[in-house]
Nucleic acid binder design. Structure first.
Length: 473
RNA sequence: GCCCCCUUCGUCUAGUGGUCAGGACGCCAGGUUUUCAACCUGGAAACAGGGGUUCAAUUCCCCUAGGGGGUGCCA
């Protein structure tokens, strides 16, 4: 079991779970689950002031919706503060860290000066070798890491390859703040080590941190995990993904009617590939996903492609599951509650029966709901402009005549209905479309709908005839 | 400013020292069809630029440009 994989998703709860975080979580999940390993969740809340309960809930909900399950309870980083402090003290005792009495003002001035002189704006090491006895009174010190000043730190990254950093470019980072709280940089290293993380898969905005963390591992004598820094996802304009690009929280995708399996497929293909394969089930992803397939360049999010995949997965879903998803989704939609209250058991039954025709023509669940509205509409139907146009004088006359034929039907099933309508069209010397469109307009109020005979059958004899009568002339 | 990373159709990508540079989304045209989808067929569409190395570079090296990330007592 020494080679068992342990990955983690470690978001900081200072914002919501966005698409980039979701992909990082997915990659970690796939890598671990695909190899019988362990996938852990760690909330990086060492910045107490900026961490919120709402953000934590949003992250948990988002992962649950995406069906990315983690092992055990979520680990809250701040709860390990004691342990993290211990390690900082150990480093201090070993001379691998030191107390820094610089005040925020001094640090700001230092940065200002460095920039003016065109130097790296990092900490200049003022207290690195100064005796603590020279400390000014009343200033609580921060503990800084005594980073190597010469030589280089090399990261053998599974995605980025061999990345070399000159140690002179990396300054002495803070391990423990002056209030005694551990910083992220210390906590990640200690937690990843303590939790037995074997593979750190995260956004490449952490690449420089990997070098700093690497130095801490070195100082502690701990083995480093395998690093895999994945390029970030960009907005449609190529810039960093931000709120400006609209709905980006993961809940937003759910509300827009995307299926988690579609999002997983899409996200997996964004930055990772397996030859020419595009439609890849989660089972297949688990089997195929590997760090080697991750590309090195950033990708842009493309809704069109997501929609295409979503349409595919909607078509593949079974009818009952889709009904359930719609029941779950409706409360989240603005006008959903109203619609929900209008659908009784019979309505749900109709939706279920109409599902084969509906799911074949919807790119999202929201679109599907919209296309299903005619099922629950109350008579007389409101016609959209195009439908109203279809129902001209002639069309209405045909509807009246056709209604007589339909009334005479012994059984109200698709075969019988279709036979009757086709026969009527034949006798009237009309192409089927000439009678199908007016029927569609009268029954759904629109010019686009599932196949018309399905509509007749699902609506039932009584409702169908009544709707036709409403429009017949 | 400094450090690091990236660059194949509009987008996601495959790919190799010699390929008609492949697929997918989207787009256009046609087919099928009771509408719309789906589906089928066809089409337009890319190796950022410049130097090398080489018999031969999209592929290897260097430079430039462009993009991104980092540069906190944030994570």
């Amino acid at each position: 079991m020494t080679d068992a994989v342990v990955t983690r998703f470690a978001p900081s709860p200072t914002g919501f779970l966005h698409i980039g975080g979701a992909r990082t979580a997915l990659f970690n999940w796939l890598y671990a689950r695909g190899r019988g390993g362990t996938f852990l969740l760690r909330i990086e809340d060492t910045d107490r002031a900026r961490s919120t309960k709402e953000a934590i809930d949003a992250i948990l909900d988002g992962l649950k919706w995406l069906e990315l399950d983690w092992d055990g309870a979520p680990h809250f980083q701040h709860e390990g503060a004691e342990r993290h402090r211990e390690i900082a003290e150990r480093l201090l005792a070993e001379g691998k860290a030191y107390k820094c009495f610089a005040t925020p003002e001094e640090l700001a001035a230092m940065r200002e000066k460095a920039r003016a002189e065109g130097r790296a704006p990092g900490y200049d090491g003022t207290w690195r070798d100064r005796d603590p006895s020279e400390a000014p009174a009343g200033v609580a010190p921060a503990i800084r890491f005594r980073a190597p000043r010469e030589g280089e730190t090399v990261i053998e990254d599974r995605v980025q390859g061999r990345v070399v950093f000159q140690n002179k470019d990396l300054d002495d980072l803070v391990l423990l703040r002056s209030d005694g709280s551990p910083t992220y940089m210390l906590s990640v290293v200690v937690d990843d080590h303590d939790m037995g993380i074997t593979h750190v898969i995260r956004g490449d905005d952490h690449l420089t941190n990997a070098a700093r963390q690497s130095q801490i591992y070195e100082a502690l004598g701990w083995a480093r995990p395998v690093f895999a820094h994945v390029p970030l996802i960009h907005g449609p304009d190529g810039a960093k993904l931000s709120k400006r690009h609209g709905a980006l929280r993961i809940e937003a995708y759910r509300a827009m009617g995307y299926l988690p399996e579609a999002l997983r497929n899409y996200l997996a293909r964004l930055g990772w590939s397996h030859g020419d394969d595009e439609i890849i089930s989660t089972e297949q992803l688990l089997e195929w996903f590997d760090l080697d397939g991750i590309g090195r360049s950033p990708a842009r999010f493309d809704f069109k492609k997501l929609e295409h995949l979503n349409a595919h997965y909607i078509r593949e879903s079974d009818d009952e599951a889709l009904v359930q998803r719609i029941k779950d989704l409706l409360p989240e939609r603005e006008d959903g509650a109203a619609l929900l209250s209008e659908i009784n058991d019979e309505g749900w039954e109709k939706l279920h029966r109409a599902m084969p025709g509906l799911k074949a023509r919807a790119k999202t669940l929201v679109e599907l709901i919209d296309n299903a509205r005619f099922l629950f509409a109350r008579r007389p139907l409101t016609l959209d402009p195009k439908a109203a146009k279809v129902l001209d004088e002639t069309a209405r006359k045909h509807l009246a005549a056709l209604a007589e034929r339909l009334k005479a039907l012994e059984t109200w099933d698709i075969e019988a209905i279709e036979a009757a309508v086709r026969d009527y069209a034949d006798r009237a010397g009309l192409k089927l479309g000439k009678i199908a469109q007016p029927l569609r307009a009268a029954l759904t109020g629109r010019t686009v709908s599932p196949p018309i005979f399905d509509v007749l059958a699902v609506l039932g004899r009584e409702e169908s005839l009544a709707r036709i009568a409403d429009q017949a002339g």
